[in-house]
């Protein structure tokens, strides 16, 4: 089955600066595909080029067999877009936001009346239907924006940083909604700088930094390839971390010194911690955890995702 999105050598430059610097990827129908990277990595730029609201500088890009650079309205008719910043119409009420957005797709009012009810139920906003958007919480606005993105029954839903700025509870409610979409086979393309979000939502992802792809694969695959099974986090106090690291040579497979802690990459974290104690080192705190995409990113770029 051919990919629903296919990019080859995709580039976007602003003057001399390359925001997206020649990337290749394919998104298959029904998969949940992620772009993981820090702010400014080129994720949103890539999303906007896919969404037909930003012209590319070079390379090839196909969305459902169409060129989003030259067949913009046609491409956009097939997509649902959830932008990074909510841009709901605050002068309209919750339900009206869905109906008026559906009108942009030429949908009739009678179809939209039924559609808006379904979408409000999906977004768990039935009780707020007649509320002014300005009175909604951040999580509710986000769910409304996602519902709005579904109004045209899109073939692909583009989500740019869907949970940035939300509190943990609101994030979980949102993830639950996105899971439901994923289960029904909607193709999701998600950008995020949260590793937990990428791990939870994405079947497959690309790790991007400075407009280039650093690695790609499923979250599990990336962790296996670029990190160890477990990580031991040690804190000796910010003044001592750098000095102590010399005495940790040979513990685990490798280690990484961050300003506030030392990360020891090991297959068995507990065993590594025993070895540390055996060397007469006593950290202020220690923690053994599973490797995450954060570790993958650190390994690939030498930087953490959230600076």
């Amino acid at each position: 089955m051919p990919g629903v999105i296919s990019a080859r050598g995709l580039r976007k430059t602003y003057g001399d600066v390359a925001a997206v610097d020649g990337i290749d990827f394919e998104v298959e129908a029904g998969e949940s595909f992620g772009l993981l990277g820090p702010n400014g990595a080129g994720k949103s730029t890539t999303m906007r080029m896919i969404g037909g609201t930003l012209d590319r500088t070079g390379g090839e890009l196909e969305v459902l067999g169409m060129d989003p650079g030259s067949e913009r309205p046609q491409v956009r008719a097939h997509l649902g877009v959830v932008p990074q910043q909510d841009n709901l119409d605050e002068e309209l009420r919750v339900r009206e936001n869905l109906v008026m957005y559906g009108r942009y797709f030429g949908m009739s009012r009678s179809v939209l009346a039924a559609k808006a009810d379904e979408l409000l139920a999906f977004a768990q906003l039935e009780a707020k239907a007649r509320e002014k958007v300005v009175n909604l919480s951040g999580g509710m606005k986000r769910r409304l924006t996602i519902a709005r993105g579904l109004v045209n029954e899109p073939r692909i839903l583009l989500l740019d940083e869907p949970t940035t700025g939300l509190d943990p509870q609101a994030r979980h409610v949102l993830w639950d909604r996105l899971f439901r979409l994923k289960e029904t086979g909607t193709t999701l393309v998600v950008t995020t700088h949260f590793m937990d979000e990428a791990e939870q939502l994405c079947d497959r992802l690309i790790v991007v930094d400075h407009g280039r792809i650093m690695a790609q694969g499923s979250p599990g695959q990336l962790i296996r390839e670029h990190s160890t099974r477990e990580v031991l986090e040690l804190r000796f106090g910010s003044a001592r971390n750098a000095a102590v690291v010399q005495q940790l040579k040979g513990v685990g497979e490798r280690n990484e010194v961050l300003p506030d802690r030392i990360l020891v990459y090991a297959r068995d974290g507990e065993a590594a911690l025993e070895e540390v104690a055996a060397r007469g080192l006593h950290p202020v705190t220690s923690l053994v955890r599973r490797s995450s995409l954060e570790d993958v990113f650190l390994r690939l770029t030498g930087r953490s995702l959230i600076d």
Partner: peptide, 13 residues
């Protein structure tokens, strides 16, 4: 309110 950025992602030009 970035109101124009909503419809710009729809088929509207």
């Amino acid at each position: 309110n970035r109101l124009y950025y909503g419809p710009v992602a729809s088929p509207l030009e």
